[in-house]
Design a protein around this nucleic acid. Sequence first.
DNA 1: TTGGAGTCAATAGG
DNA 2: CCTATTGACTCCAA
Length: 405
Amino acid sequence: APESPLSSAEESVKSQQEEQMCRSSIQEPSDASESQSSILLPLPPPGHSGLSIQEMVAMSPELDTYAITKKVKEVLTDNNLGQRLFGESILGLTQGSVSDLLARPKPWHKLSLKGREPFVRMQLWLGDPRNVEKLMDMKRMEKKAYMKRRHSSIGESHSLDAGGLSGSDLTQGASPQHLSQQHQHQHQQQQQQQPHLKKPRVVLAPEEKEALKRAYQQKPYPSPKTIEELASQLNLKTSTVINWFHNYRSRIRRELFIEEIQAAAGEGGSPSARPGMKSGGEGENSCDGTESDSTAEGRPGGSSGSEERKGLMESPGLSHRDEDGEGEFPSASGTSRPRGGLIDSLFGIPDSSSVTSASVKSASAVPLRNPKDSSLRKKKAANLNNIIHRLEKAANRDEPHEWEF
DNA sequence: TTGGAGTCAATAGG
DNA sequence: CCTATTGACTCCAA
């Protein structure tokens, strides 16, 4: 299906000589067996030329999505370019998507072919500094068009903007065929028939979210029955609850990815020999440690302080009644889960502490750089549930019975 | 059907 | 204006 819709400067700027990033990779011999695929393809060899992005994505070597987004953010802010313009003209994505992508890039190996596309586009875009100029020109043109529109009160439609480079006209009104190629086609959010009634967009109240999160902790994959219950209890549509779980799982997963990356950074405990990287100032990092939950809605005046100290499950066995067949932890009979070691090592997190983290108030003694310990733990627990869920599912396929560990 | 991956697009804050 | 968040939707694969 050859079709190369996009347009926008596709030039053949595919000069792939990135390497500018601070790619230390001086991996020291230590490290644990990190098998890692990483088959470095030589890239569209020298002879690049007009390849469709899809092809390029397919051939692309492993890219450092984090480094790419970091650079893109830097370039955009330095030049006062917005995510909307960048997204619509370079990536063919909307602003919100760009924001999400730049803030929480998934590691390359966890991306699907489709998901890699934006990163390849970004890499390409970064490849030629002239691209920035082009975007800036576009921005100017856009502004000009806007001013014009604003003035001539009425009408108009004609007099298009200056023909500038490769389209992307913006000004929504006209030429629809700009970037978004295949997308944007019909549908997507096909709205209801009546062009009038706009669906009000559901906005869950903080407490509803809390309740859902709590439910998630218990069962990341609620049964239809549980979903129905939740829906009626919270007075929400079933589909809303379903969507919420889909989204929440998906977003939790992503958080885990970034933590995975952060953990990987500076690993090895090595004294670090930060290989230079003289990039324009700005010390690395900047990765906020975004805390997610911890909803702190405290109605002033109300004594609603629930003050719920998250005891977080963790406690194996007991206290978990299984409603229907599929319950959360299999909590096998007496066998306690390996807890700690094995599991945690899966996440590459040392964690030597015991289960109950709360107890340790000693503080001071341990400078633990982890400000968000509980959340990380919660997420890991969630991921564990996820894994368990899958195992059970797979197991049920054959012998739907007890697990005997 | 279910769940995951990607996105869109409305909306809340700056 | 701009960016971040997030419920809903489309595609796809199992």
